[in-house]
Structure formats: C-alpha cells, structure tokens
C-alpha cells in the first residue's frame, strides 16, 4: 500500500473508526444482519468522523483564513478587471471567512469600494459553495477526483454566474445606499500568531455550535436512506439514467438551509443506494449555494429582479453540473 492511500484511509476515510464502531456494536449483538445494527453503524461512524474532521479542518482552514479578511480580499479584487475579477473573486470566496449574517455588510462593502456587482456575486456564490473544509470532506466521503472536480465546477459556476450578472448591467437593481462611500476609513488590522490561533479556536467552537444539529439530522437521514429506504425507490427516482433526477434533487435542495457538513452524509447515502453522482452533487450544491434565509437577507439590498436572476442562473448552473456529472462522472467514482 502506498503512503498516500494509507494517509487517505487513516486520516480521511478513518477505516479504523469504521471497524472499531462495528466491533463495539458487535459486542451488543448489533451486527449488519439487523437493520438497527446497520443504521447505528452508519450513524455512529459518520457522526464521530464528521465531528473529528470538522474540528481539525475548521481549525486549519480558519488559520489560513485569518490571513484573508474581507478587507484584504476587497483590496486585492480592486486590482483585477473583467473576468479576472470574477475568477479571483470566486477563489477568494473559498478562503475568506464570513458568517451569513455578515453577507449584507460584505456586499455593501464591496460595491461601495467600486467593485462590479458581478464580482461581488462571484464571491458570494463560491463562499458557501466551495470552501477548503468541504474539499477535504468530499475527499473523505467520496474520493479526491470527485472533490477536485467539485471545486473546479463550483468555481466555474461562481465565475460564470457573476460574469452574466456583470453583462446584464443591473446596477440599478441594487439599493442606492450600497454605492455610498463610507464616511470612515478603517485601518487593516494585523494579527499576532496568538490571535490567529484564538481566532481559529473560536471559529471551531462557533461552527460546531452552529452545525451540530444539522450534522445529526443529516447523518440520521443518511443512515435511514442507507439501510431502510428500498434501493429501487432511490434508483427509480434519482438513478443517473433518469433525466428528471437532477432537476428534482436541485429543486428540493435549493430552498433548504443547511451547510455542507450536514448535507454530505445524505448525498453519500444516496450515491451508495444507486443515485447518480451528478444528482447527489446537484442536491449538495442546491442546499449550500442557495437558501430561503439567505435570499431574505439579500433582498434587503438587492431588488427582486436581480435576486430572481441570481437564483435562476445559479439553479440552472447547478442542474447543468448535475447532468454533466451524470453523463461523464461515473469514471470518477
């Protein structure tokens, strides 16, 4: 076994955890012969794995993120024109920390600094959709090829949607106060190493507090899908040969609000039971990229026409990605 496979199995897939959970359940007579045993095995293994990965990943990622506060991203973005602005915006979106309750100040902070709204949208789309932690999590649940493919299409979706929004010249669709120059100039703060560590520790606590319930619900649903829902039902509705599976998964996912940590176990179980990989990714992207709560927030600065265009473009993009993965993605599994 080569080193890479070993590292992957031990640290990302945690095969040892899978085996030990199975052994412990075996002591209680709960083997895979019973539905309860199988459900518990999936639930316990996935919950423990996700919380371990979540803590380690968020800590590492937040430390990297502490070097890219939105103030710095805004300054970097000011240097790029046209589609490069969208591309860099999408890439910075993957590493800039921001909580959803800050999306409006961030939106205004970008536009008031003179950044094109398309660039801001590229940033806002990629930020929840593709983050560093989600890449490693996808590699753990599926594999590296899927994780990298996900990142590439996620960033492309953000660049593409932002570019269209730029081309449509919808500046009049943004509340006028968003263009006002702020009355105050802020100094960019520099952090000491100790402050970065405490920033990262706070981020781990904050995110665990925010997502633990979603993770438990997600893993619970995943365990049920994995072991209780009959396979023909999944393949019939969501199989990769069913054209309607992608729109169905996308439209179910879009209004839902959850983050990638809670959604992945569901996607994992769906794929294991015969859903298309594109179908599962569409669901995942629909849940993370768009949600009713975030739309309500955005509606405070963005008028309905632009909001609708934004939602429609992203939804169509997610479906296109789903169809492409179902058509060509099997080789990745």
């Amino acid at each position: 076994m080569n080193l890479f496979v070993w590292i992957n199995d031990v640290f990302l897939k945690m095969t040892w955890l899978y085996d030990s959970v199975g052994t412990v359940l075996g002591w209680f007579g709960l083997t895979h012969d019973s539905v309860l045993g199988a459900v518990l095995h999936f639930f316990l293994y996935d919950t423990i794995k996700i919380f371990i990965l979540l803590s380690v990943l968020i800590f590492t990622v937040s430390t990297i993120q502490s070097y890219f506060p939105p103030e710095r991203s805004r300054r970097i973005l000011g240097r790029f024109k046209g589609i490069w602005g969208n591309l860099i915006g999408a890439l910075l979106g993957t590493i800039t920390p921001f909580c959803s309750c800050s999306s409006i100040p961030l939106f205004i902070g970008f536009t008031s600094a003179g950044l094109p709204i398309g660039v801001t949208f590229s940033f806002l789309i990629s930020s929840p959709l593709v983050d560093l932690a989600s890449i490693l999590l996808l590699a753990s649940v599926f594999n590296w090829k899927i994780a990298l493919a996900y990142v590439v299409v996620g960033v492309l979706l953000a660049v593409f949607s932002g570019t269209i929004i730029s081309k449509l010249h919808l500046e009049d669709q943004v509340a006028s106060f968003a263009f006002n120059k702020p009355a105050f100039e802020l100094d960019e703060e520099t952090l000491t190493r100790k402050q970065r560590v405490s920033f990262a520790v706070d981020a781990v606590k904050d995110i665990v507090r925010k997502v633990w319930l979603y993770v438990l619900i997600g893993v619970g649903l995943g365990a049920l899908i994995h072991n209780v829902v009959p396979e023909p039902l999944i393949t019939g509705l969501l199989g990769q040969d069913k054209w309607y599976s992608v729109p169905l998964a996308t439209l179910v996912g879009v209004p839902l609000y959850a983050d990638i940590f809670g959604t992945l176990p569901i996607a994992e179980a769906l794929v294991a039971k015969g859903a298309g990989i594109g179908t599962a990714l569409s669901f995942l992207m629909g849940v993370t990229a768009l949600s009713l709560p975030s739309m309500v927030l955005l509606s405070k600065v963005v008028k309905p026409k632009l909001l609708t265009i934004f939602a429609v473009i992203v939804t169509i993009g997610i479906m296109v990605i789903g169809f492409l993965f179902n058509a060509f993605g099997l080789g990745l599994l």
Binding site: P70, S102, P105, F177, N180, P182, F184, V301
Partner: peptide
C-alpha cells in the same frame, strides 16, 4: 439599520 452600519465602513458585524 444596515445603511447606518455600513456607513461606518465595516464589512463584518
């Protein structure tokens, strides 16, 4: 009010 908050130039609340 979001208008008043952003007038201070902050991007993170």
């Amino acid at each position: 009010k979001i208008e008043e908050i952003t007038a201070y130039g902050i991007m993170r609340t």
